[in-house]
Design a binder for these strands. Sequence first.
DNA 1: ATGACGGTGTGGCACCGA
Length: 258
Amino acid sequence: MKIATWNVNSLAVRLPQVLDWLAAQPVDVLCLQELKLSDDKFPLVELEAAGYHSAVLGQKTYNGVAILSRTPPREVVRNIVGFADEQSRVISATLDTPAGELRVVNGYFVNGQEPGSEKFAYKMRWQDALREQVRAELSAHPRLVLLGDFNVAPEDRDSYDPEGLRETIHHTTQERDQFKALLELGLHDAYRLFEQPEKSYSWWDYRMLGFQKNRGLRIDHILVSEALKARVQSCNIDRAPRKNKQPSDHAPVVVELA
DNA sequence: ATGACGGTGTGGCACCGA
């Protein structure tokens, strides 16, 4: 069975591409970020026709996350419990899958703009709260997947220019320490469980021919808990949708579980 | 230091993303 994450940068614009992709890659679960639409604008009917149930936390214009699943999501939790947040960035659900019952936590992590900014401080606060949420989720649900747009390139090899971009946004020690702190909860970066091509990225700037020149970052991640680690069969980035007309700036990441 | 591209909502552009 397969689980995927994809920052679609507006589901209103990208829905046809999402439906095409699901037809070509019939994953069991697809977690979306940056819906950029309110719940009432969510294309429930179209996705049901494609064979997917949805759990949604929408927001007008910015943010917004959803879990699409072949089976109905259960025990849905929206955003971070006890962390007041006007932005729609996290949705969690329990799913019955061919690989058994899984807890899925789908996050659109804060961008942070620039180290030292108020937005960067929010990024750190938000991650502190998310980590505690994940810690609690893990103790209740050992079979857990945390995935989404983490807005961090965890290591130098996850960036097209680690030297030139050192300590800039997505590359700071603080952001990388936050990522490590998630791993220390007992999570594993599924992509790095396997040998991968060099210069593998999941996001490329729309500007300056970023994709054509492969000037990208690997910032979309799938972390699996210890209980699931041995069941991971593969993890890959699907660059094909980035070649579409009107693409998202992110590519889907797919993990296969036995 | 700035903008490049693309989406949204507004209103003739500004803001945000990464």
